[in-house]
């Protein structure tokens, strides 16, 4: 079972910076980061007309399905996936074994450039997530939900 996923302000800012730089340096349209359970962590670039929640869930489903395929042929996982479209392309990588980095790019960029920039960004993100995990596992990192009451929960459903 995975540990609880938690995101703090500091790490979120660091992650967003890395994603923004990657968007610029790879001449990408959109960069987003998803956890393996399909929750969106961060997104940068031209996300206005994009359903990022659906993208996150389908990306995680895609990674899960290809991971299943990998295991069937004796591989641990396929860490890079590439989908080529008529206009836009998707480059998907697993970072730090835990999160998924997705880059959407068109003909203004190239697969080679994206791969190069993703490698560097992936290493940085991996380090941030390692630190985050240590922080979450550290004692005293209490959840804000430890003190919620039955009333709080009931109120959510009062119509």
């Amino acid at each position: 079972m995975n540990a609880q996923m938690v995101m703090y302000e500091d790490e979120f800012n660091q992650i967003t910076q890395v994603c923004e730089r990657l968007t610029r340096e790879a001449s990408a349209k959109v960069v987003f980061l998803v956890d393996k359970n399909g929750q969106l962590i961060a997104s940068c670039g031209q996300t206005e007309n994009l359903d990022t929640t659906s993208l996150a869930s389908l990306t995680a489903g895609n990674i899960a399905a290809t991971g299943g395929l990998a295991k069937l042929i004796g591989e641990k996982e396929f860490s890079i996936l590439f989908h080529e479209g008529e206009r836009d392309n998707l480059h998907i990588t697993i970072v730090g074994g835990r999160v998924i980095l997705v880059v959407i790019f068109d003909s203004r960029s190239s697969l080679g450039l994206v791969r190069l920039r993703v490698k560097k960004a992936g290493e940085e993100l991996g380090r941030i997530f390692d630190g985050l995990l240590k922080k979450v596992e550290a004692p005293g990192a209490g959840s804000p939900f430890a003190e919620i009451t039955d009333e709080d929960i009931d109120n959510l459903f009062s119509e």
Partner: peptide, 9 residues
């Protein structure tokens, strides 16, 4: 596992 995001609350 649930995901708690302090940044976006």
């Amino acid at each position: 596992m649930s995901f708690i995001n302090y940044s976006s609350r």
